[in-house]
Amino acid sequence: MTAPILELDAVSKTFGTGADAVHAAQSISFAVNRGECLAIVGESGSGKSTVANMILGIYPPSSGEIRLNGTALPASRKLEHRRAIQLVQQNPLSSLNPKRSIGASLRLALDVHDIGASAERANLVGALLEEVGLPADFARRSPTALSGGQRQRVAIARALACQSEIVVLDEPTSALDVLVQARVLKLLNQLRETRDLTFVFITHDLSVVRNIATRIAVFEKGRMVELGDTETLFANPAHPYTRRLISAVPVVTLEEAALRSSLAAGLEETTE
């Protein structure tokens, strides 16, 4: 049994102090194994983004420890840690610099992390673009000259550029059309396999999670209320909040509707 690639050990985050304190994440513990796709699902205010930000080192936990390959991560991350854990955000238009060409954005990642000989880097950029299903000559284009799906592919290429091990995907397809979303999810699945990547997939979309995650952590109001492998969690959700979440998903087929109503049975009608 190999050690988990990423571990969170009683991680908490509190913003503010005294009476105004917000406990955004409360004693979160879980381990992510190499090569898996762990989904963190929850609604707004559940703490899922807070946890993602702590994994990325955007801010340190108020208490608790985050370990990468068994070693505790320091509050201020070293370049090596930042290389290992990369982020793909929801809106690629705002995460890619509009004044830089696609090629320059990718090149920057290679330069910062000193990947490949500098003469080689132009070729590496082309290879990265092809790996995510885009033509190599897209390197000359500006992000604004690309469609949403293409831009998201570029954002994925950038996360891969520095040979990352863990990619935190924060709602990577929720701004995309459904046909485009299917293609991007397919690509992510494929890259996870070929590159032996580990995904932390942050989303509110349970239908997506059902089909891409190996395990699911359900968050509610700063706490992790349930953690289980995808099949088990959908077959037999233990926590009422998980049930409520699944039974609120709008669905397109009768089989899904049947699953949903079987989970909704026994839940009390609640309004906000």
Partner: peptide
């Protein structure tokens, strides 16, 4: 293209 709550993986379809 809509991912199913009942599972079945991500379908293989063309964008266009």
């Amino acid at each position: 293209a809509v991912p199913r709550l009942t599972g079945g993986g991500i379908p293989d379809i063309d964008e266009d």
